[in-house]
Amino acid sequence: MLELRLVQGNLLKKVLEAVKDLVTDANFDCSSTGFSLQAMDSSHVALVALLLRSEGFEHYRCDRNVSMGMNLNNMAKMLKCAGNDDIVTIKADDGSDTVTFMFESPNQDKIADFEMKLMDIDSEHLGIPEAEYHAIVRMPSSEFARICKDLSSIGDTVVISVTKEGVKFSTRGDIGNANVVCRQNTTVDKPEESTTIEMHEPVSLTFALRYMNSFTKATPLSSTVTISLSSELPVVVEYKIAEMGYIRFYLAPKIED
């Protein structure tokens, strides 16, 4: 028996919107730790890891570890039927081949059940070791989304370079090239509007903008984004989900021939 009641049901709606274009089918894993997902995109270039900790749910019952295979587009379709203020409960019986999403309006005058078929997904689970990153950039998520969108109208790849001067996002394409430099800026009143750069070593890496743009679909989940870079590793683009956990995107770099 599994029963997870999430008062902020719209968090789940936002999570689905953030991952459904990157990943088609995925196993959601449920354990005493929380509700999680790890999946790669079809070309195995990017990986998404989601964690919603059990403490973040109003009610969390998970009698034994369960892995539920879901088509994310279908799940998103069902969650779109929940109101933004609705309480969402995820329910599944042991051994069942369906999952039920229950939506309750805040004043309990409307209750809806949406039952979705589960699927068997043979997915590869990867171990991601803790890493020391050469540079960690924390910036407003809307600013990062804007930069990715702007640069993708010029080129297909972005070079992210971190130096003492700041973080530079560069692209080049047929019509020309573009560079956006963001400097550390902690003087603004609100911490969510500041840019901080923690640099241990300068680093410069090249990534496909198509994936970066896809990651920015998670922008509604968090006002800030953290970009962790190391010269020999995939970049980690992390959106914290307040009081609940995170959604992390890992993207393998492009290297010169």
Binding site: V45, L47, E124, G127, T157
Partner: peptide
């Protein structure tokens, strides 16, 4: 142009 690496080249299956 540059070659796109795969995420599985960095992280191992568990």
């Amino acid at each position: 142009g540059p070659i796109q690496l795969s995420i599985t080249e960095f992280y191992r299956s568990t």
